[in-house]
Amino acid sequence: MSRLPDDLKYAKTHEWAKPEESGNVRVGISDYAQEQLGDVVYVELPEVGRRVKAGEACAVVESVKAASDIYSPVSGEIVEVNGSLSDAPEAINQDSYAAWLFCVKADDLSELNTLLDAEAYKADAEAD
């Protein structure tokens, strides 16, 4: 199975989440998700300043044959988006952990506890 850094949290819907010191949570998609999608051709990002709930669809990653909704793993406010993906969506295929999508200022970091660790995500994805 694909690369799964131990220091990240994962959602069943294939997002990774990384809490930062500032209290923000950076979000991207897992290497496994990137492999499943194939060549990413377009990324639709949320507006900075938008309020999102945990589990709410707020971005879309498109390949030639599929469009995949990306759900925010935590509730909060979108404070930053990775605009460089508009010109270079292939960055997600190159390194999906470097190519983050958006950053949420979380209302409640404990929501992260409902996510999976690398081990559990691996087991879950393999069962799919």
Binding site: V41, Y42, E62, S63, V64, K65, A66, A67, D69
Partner: peptide, 13 residues
């Protein structure tokens, strides 16, 4: 091209 906008991929959305 850009077919991911369309009904045969995105269906209800």
């Amino acid at each position: 091209t850009l077919q991911a906008r369309e009904q045969h991929i995105r269906r209800g959305r």
